[in-house]
């Protein structure tokens, strides 16, 4: 195997990488690799510096600008929102006062109406009470009269049944005197 390797090494320059040696140490391929490496690096370098890096730099700068602008706008909008909130609170407070006033007014109105209605009702009730009292008095008077008549009749009957003779006038006077007493 060693002899094989040395033979391979001897022939290595002509055959490229030998099967036994390390391809990394095959010096015949070095110029090729170095040449293509240089080409590759130059190409990547020019692609980067001419196209890519300026583009990425531009995008990053633009993004920064947009973000700054957006932040400013957001700040402005926030201020606006604060102002709007203050205005809203103001309006709310005013509306509340207004509402309280309206409620008070309505309450006063209602109270007035209520008072009027109460007064009317009171008057009506009073009138009814007066009338009722009158009627009660009438009925009472009627009843008294009836009681008087019944008493007189009863007295007359009683007197006649007991055998007495009673004229109407004296019986009536007696009954009246008793009823008054």
């Amino acid at each position: 195997m060693v002899t094989e390797t040395t033979v391979e090494e001897a022939a290595g320059a002509a055959h490229g990488a030998g099967s036994a040696g390390m391809p990394q140490l095959d010096f015949s391929t070095f110029p090729n690799q170095i040449f293509w490496l240089a080409v590759t690096l130059v190409v990547i370098y020019f692609v980067m510096t001419r196209i890519s890096l300026p583009r990425i730099g531009g995008v990053l700068a633009e993004r920064k600008g947009v973000i700054t602008n957006d932040l400013e706008t957001a700040e402005k909008l926030k201020q606006k929102a604060v102002l709007a909130e203050a205005a809203y609170n103001d309006a709310l407070a005013r509306a509340r006062v207004e509402a309280a006033k309206i409620v008070g007014q309505a309450r006063a109105d209602i109270q007035k109406d209520l008072d009027k209605a109460t007064a009317k009702a009171d008057a009506k009730i009073a009138a009814k009470v007066v009338e009722s009292e009158k009627r009660i008095n009438e009925i009472r008077a009627g009843a008294l009269e009836a009681v008087t008549a019944v008493a007189k009749n009863t007295a007359k009957e009683l007197v006649s049944a007991l055998g007495g003779k009673a004229d109407a006038a004296s019986v009536n006077a007696a009954v009246s005197a008793r009823l008054k007493g």
């Binding site: 490229g16 015949s28 391929t29 090729n32 170095i34 040449f35 293509w36």
Partner: peptide, 8 residues
């Protein structure tokens, strides 16, 4: 054989 310019 591989020269310096050969595409490999």
């Amino acid at each position: 054989p591989i020269q310096w310019y050969t595409p490999t």
